[in-house]
Design a protein around this nucleic acid. Structure first.
Length: 420
DNA sequence: TCTGGGGTCCTAGGGCGA
DNA sequence: TCTGTCGCCCTAGGACCC
């Protein structure tokens, strides 16, 4: 059996752990640059605040309903997430951390356990130990565990936040209850397609013909169908190195000058290459993209990307940035107002399996330099040592007007308790 | 005026060598 | 020598996830 543990309204819950006054109040978290709503408490959802809604469009709603607004604080959420995951790993040896707020558990050899009760225990221990409320869904496949989790989350009192699908009757009932858009793996496009042929819920999807599903939704759709029928197609995924490492950002203003974009691309490459070195890997493909603001229909639009091959697989910022700058030069066009850019490193291989080039070889000094830089930045605690290509006076700055303290990762932000 | 970021997987279609 | 077919590789684009 598989279990899916999902933290309820994770980012909002993290803020509440350290500010209990937020309990019962509407809370929203905004994306980078304070652009969109990316998380909401139940109270905020009840007000009709939509996921992904632009913040500037919600201002009136926020004001009138005294909504508590926060800029995203990923250092805090990441730390809280590892506390939850550490607690979960005490309940089974088989765990897959699926995202910052979700984990799949596998219960092999738990035949003598009452899994419903076990789920309730997991819920209690995690919530007590971390302050984060969770829901637990258990079923024979990962996709059904997702469904079970939705039921536990929807009916926390009736289910005690733990629901198990362990009979054919329960499976069919749960699928009939699940709207087609809520099935894991069926997004908005497929949902429209399915509704057009009269499929409204997961059960109706599960009895479609295999041929139709395969033809219209590829092998991925067919796998979902089998999973919903109770036949496991997906197992726990092993932790593996990332296949692509990206740093992409929207700018706080529009850029027209090549030099400005060049500085940003240089900084993005520095950050991506740092992530690459952290996972002990090399890359041999650098993709750069730039684009104008596609929301501004009144302005001329331009969007291009390019992939540049490095001479050899490397993790050196100097070599990767050389390629990124070549790419940028090729795709930059003057006369446009640029809103976003990014650098994505691809063709990633572990250090141990790096293929050497016949004619070019890495400069050994780069390796020593990168290592020294990473160590310096690590000891300082943030990226302070930079290359000349990056702006020292940080002309570019992310908008984060409502950032909460870093309660668990910065010593000056740790809560002080007064003892009488 | 202001609209996120970072990933994965799959398929179609073209180029190319056997 | 020419042509058709097959399979592999690569890229672009579409779908999805959180």
């Amino acid at each position: 059996m598989f279990g899916l543990v999902d933290c309820n309204n994770f980012y909002a819950s993290c803020q509440r752990v350290f500010e209990p006054r937020l309990k019962g109040k509407p809370v929203v978290i905004l994306s980078n640059n304070d652009g969109c709503v990316i998380a909401r408490s139940n109270e905020a959802k009840a007000l009709g605040i939509k996921m992904g809604a632009p913040a500037f469009e919600c201002e009136k709603l926020f004001r009138e309903n005294h909504v508590h607004i926060y800029s995203s604080n990923f250092a805090l959420y990441g730390d809280m997430s590892s506390r939850v995951m550490n607690t979960l790993s005490t309940f089974t040896p088989s765990i897959e951390i699926y995202s910052i707020d979700e984990a799949f558990l596998k219960f092999d050899g738990f035949d003598s356990y009452d899994l419903k009760k076990y789920g309730e225990k997991i819920q209690k221990v995690v919530t007590k130990g971390t302050g984060i409320p969770i829901s637990v869904g258990i079923a024979p496949t990962k996709t059904l565990a997702k469904v079970a989790n939705k039921i536990a989350k929807k009916y926390p009192i009736k289910t005690r936040s733990s629901y198990v699908i362990d009979t054919e009757q329960k499976r069919i009932k749960a699928l009939k209850w699940t709207e087609i858009d809520d099935v894991w793996g069926i997004g908005s496009r497929y949902a429209i397609k399915l509704r057009n042929i009269g499929v409204q819920n997961a059960y109706q999807f599960s009895i479609l013909s295999n041929d139709w599903v395969k033809k219209e939704m590829s092998i991925v759709g067919l796998r979902i169908k089998y999973e919903l029928m109770g036949n496991p197609m997906l197992d726990l995924e092993k932790i593996q190195h990332k296949k692509a490492i990206a740093t992409t950002r929207s700018f706080e203003r529009l850029y027209t000058q090549y030099e400005d974009l060049s500085e940003r691309v240089s900084a993005f490459t520095a950050y991506s290459s740092e992530k690459l070195r952290k996972q002990n890997s090399h890359s041999n493909l650098v993709m750069v993209f730039i684009r104008t603001n596609y929301f501004r229909k009144d302005q001329p639009q331009y969007s291009r990307s390019i992939v540049i091959k490095t001479d050899y697989a490397t993790s050196s910022y100097i070599e990767l940035n050389r390629c990124a700058q070549i790419g940028l030069k090729k795709i930059y066009k003057s006369g446009y107002q640029y809103k976003k850019a990014g650098v994505i490193l691809m063709g990633i291989s572990p250090d141990s399996a790096t293929q050497l080039s016949l004619f070019e070889s890495p400069n050994p000094k780069h390796r020593i330099l990168m290592h020294a830089m990473d160590q310096l930045n690590q000891s300082i605690g943030s990226t302070k040592v930079m290359f000349a290509g990056q702006s020292l006076d940080r002309k570019w700055k992310m908008k984060q007007e409502r950032l909460s303290p870093y309660f668990t990762t910065k010593i000056k932000d740790v809560i002080k308790i007064k003892l009488n």
